[in-house]
Design a protein around this nucleic acid. Structure first.
Lengths: 217, 217
DNA sequence: ATAATAATGGCACCGAGTGCCGAATGGGAA
DNA sequence: TTCCCATTCGGCACTCGGTGCCATTATTAT
């Protein structure tokens, strides 16, 4: 999808009447208040002041609206992986990269949490996530393949990519459930254990809340 | 869904005019020949000699038709895990259980392969698989939780379940791509490396074909 | 003005999935 | 045999996500 939206335009033709970001905000607000399945595409379009047809020119599906600039995140992760020191163990590099690419400012966290909560909670979005995360896996498999000297489609790079994704998902999912905790801590523990073959999993404690659960309205 | 279909019936009321198994066979045949997306539910119903509406009484969705008796597989896996010796390392028990529950007779393999090829290839089915595999993860998380003395929803049991699922999926997926190879071998290598934190992944070779690729028409 | 360009959005259509309800089909009881 | 009852069947109409088509609209360039 898009990776950018804002850059100044000086092109001929009718200018766009909205932005991805606009639609996103309107839609996520509706999802959060009415529920994902109870919100029709028409609802979103109406709330955004555009036509139903137009919405589908901005997003390929209702599901995709929730993902924000995921492609940008992938770019960042690719960059982090590329920049990792060659002597650093594979899974260690991976752990650091994942944590780094998901290091949001405090102000951005509530929105990130809302998105993630939708993705990990609503069945439709859960299943759709498999497709979106395929790109994530591809980034990891590419990196692992490079490190292992194998092709990205081979068993080990794929296994590493799938396992890393799974582990990260578990961390994200658990983080969403536990208000006031840090994503980084969850990711760190889970990916750390992955690198250890989960040998010390029995001794790992649940991360505890540090911040007061925001807006407990 | 069902786990059984065949047992003798002696109930009042109109008898069923078909079975899950019947519909499955007809549908998978159509999927294999025309492609999943090119096959409408109406096509399947017509080919099975039943009404569209009736088909949806046998399967909750078009996607689910391909999964066969997955619940039965989960039961078997649960049983294998329960039967594993307590002193056996967690991931080792998991590895053995997964391999054991996917040990098909030679005659069943082509059908299993077809199903798995559909599931891992068709986007709609790929994403739907996420939902079906949630039950698989639940079985593993339950087992891991028991072993670790933690709750199943806690981070480590979840991470193990997600990671194991991912690893198994990578193995299945790769197996489907490589004709003539053994599923067991793929699963063994991948899950073995998971237990080792992928420390020796660089030395793992791709499994090689043993059997002649069946029916190379 | 006029032409070229690009976004908009209405319309018709498809396919998956659902609620509703009358019709069909068997066994068991009168 | 006949009637009753339980249960399945399947048509109909409807909702919703998604797509192809195309006329309309709002800009910039000439």
């Amino acid at each position: 999808m898009r990776t950018t939206d804002a850059p100044a335009r000086r092109t001929p033709g009718r200018p766009p009447s909205t932005t991805h970001r606009d639609i996103e905000r309107v839609a996520v607000a509706l999802f959060a208040s009415k529920g994902f399945d109870q919100t029709t595409v028409e609802d979103i379009a109406a709330a955004a002041g555009i036509g139903r047809r137009t919405l589908f020119r901005y997003f390929p599906s209702k599901n995709d609206i929730v993902w924000g600039d995921f492609d940008g995140l992938l770019d960042r992760m690719r960059e982090h992986l590329r920049a990792s020191p060659p002597q650093e163990p594979l899974l260690e590099a991976l752990r650091r990269a994942v944590i780094a690419t998901n290091d949001y400012h405090a102000a951005e966290i509530p929105e990130f949490r809302t998105r993630l909560e939708l993705i990990t909670t609503v069945p439709t979005l859960q299943s759709h996530s498999y497709l979106r995360y395929a790109d994530w896996r591809a980034v990891v498999a590419e990196f692992a393949a490079e490190r292992l000297g194998q092709a990205p489609e081979h068993l080990m790079p794929q296994a590493i990519a799938y396992a890393a994704l799974g582990t990260a998902l578990a961390a994200f999912r658990r983080w969403v459930q536990c208000e006031g905790t840090d994503v980084a801590e969850h990711l760190d523990l889970a990916l750390g254990q992955l690198a250890a073959g989960f040998a010390g999993a029995g001794g790992v404690r649940e991360p505890r809340a540090r911040r007061r659960p925001a807006r407990a309205r």
